[in-house]
Design a protein around this nucleic acid. Structure first.
Lengths: 238, 238
DNA sequence: TTGTGCCTCGCTATTTTGGGGGAGTTTGAT
DNA sequence: ATCAAACTCCCCCAAAATAGCGAGGCACAA
């Protein structure tokens, strides 16, 4: 029964082809699991933020205006954790957090919540949240029953989100030669040019050629930039 | 039926308290799903690697000795993706990949596999892999049936792994101050010190203080290293 | 055969970083 | 109220990285 509810939803999700569709699906999910809110919110590699969810428009706008993303204990907490986080376990004691919480509840965000942090390559970060307004024990038993469903949904939601995002930004995936990869890798490990040249047993002059050609391929302004881009594109592993 | 198999396993996993126990559980899993191998392998924030799995000891040793982690298309591919990857979809055409594959199969690694990449805060990266030796269509139907189970198991396995790792290395999760984050971010974007100082509207001398303190906090040898670490640990998003 | 890309080595001059000092204000938390 | 941490500014000088020129050999593909 639970299983088929999940299956049905994942089947629908599979067919989504736009961000609007994702938005619709958060509403479907909210009804399916009888909770107040379902929100999916992510930060792409270039730092842009996207969101899909059932929160009130006014709240979303207020959240952005007040730059609550830097205050919200849910976001701050999830950035530092791996596993899904029950809002109860977060630190709501600071002054800013208290103010935020009051404001959030006033705008219809539930007092209970579970947020699943998800990370992708190149620093993508996503948060899938279910929130509700109810007593503690009621919420605990809901979570116990649905935790696994929620994890899976978060996972597939994010997969779909990344897929849709990727289609709008086609990546020009220029690759590096083996020596260039070596060079970038050691530089990312903090070696100086002299040390890298020594490690690779080549002259420093040769090394410089690699660094410069890597810089050109990556369209980077300097070594640090090149290393950052190589890491972002998954070309080197440090 | 499927569901209860999964439930039972997750219950057992929950009780694991050591890396040895995780190792045992990979064998249990392999029998439970009737596959050749189950491997969990992760890289902690400081770059150390751990593993638990059913692979032959000789193969693991060889893998480390030959630094196959930089060649293995599974690892390279998963670093760049978010979703679980069927080995068939990876790029096995390069010369080094072909050599690696032959060596792997000779050591009993299956010809089929599914790997789930998982990322944690502070740059942890884990890979949960199921491999098997069989025909393509047989594998495809196995994956279709068990994909969701595998994702959940990967998730819980990783949660347990991080938990066990944390107990051995109390994370010095040094965070950066807002200005330090700003500095690192612009440096990662290729700006020179002068440009960053200009952008942040502070003197270059002040900027240097931030860069140096960020370097110290991150235990980095130079600016490039500091930026690489900040990116790896998810402290900056570029 | 004639590219094209990769690997290797060289020079000089200029710009950018790094390491060592010190000193004051503002802000937030206990 | 007090204390720590963050933010801001200044000096000097050595070390390292960058930019602009070169060159030749090797392998693989059109």
């Amino acid at each position: 029964m639970q299983r088929s509810k999940l299956e049905t939803f994942l089947g629908t999700l599979e067919k989504a082809t736009s961000l609007d569709a994702l938005q619709q699906l958060t509403f479907a999910l909210k009804d399916l699991y009888h909770v107040d809110h379902v929100v999916y919110h992510w930060v792409s590699a270039d730092g842009e933020q996207y969101g899909a969810g059932t929160y009130d428009r006014l709240w979303v706008q207020r959240y952005i205006e007040k730059d609550y993303v830097r205050v919200d204990p849910v976001v701050v907490g999830c950035y530092q954790r791996f596993h899904p986080v029950d809002w109860k376990r977060l630190d709501w004691t600071t002054k800013t957090a208290k103010v935020f919480r009051e404001d959030a509840i006033a705008h219809g965000v539930g007092n209970q919540g579970l947020s699943v942090p998800i990370r992708g390559p190149s620093g993508q970060f996503a948060l899938f949240t279910i929130s509700h307004s109810c007593k503690d024990d009621e919420w605990t038993s809901f979570i116990e029953d649905n935790r696994r469903d929620i994890i899976l949904i978060a996972h597939y939601f994010n997969q779909k989100g990344l897929e849709l995002e990727k289609s709008r930004v086609p990546a020009p995936n220029q690759s590096l030669s083996p020596r260039e990869v070596d060079a970038m890798t050691f530089l990312a490990m903090g070696y100086s040019r002299a040390q890298v040249a020594d490690t690779l047993a080549i002259s420093e002059h040769t090394l410089r050629v690699y660094i410069e050609s890597a810089r050109h391929k990556l369209g980077a302004l300097n070594t640090t930039h090149a290393v950052a881009r190589a890491m972002n594109r998954g070309l080197i592993v440090v």
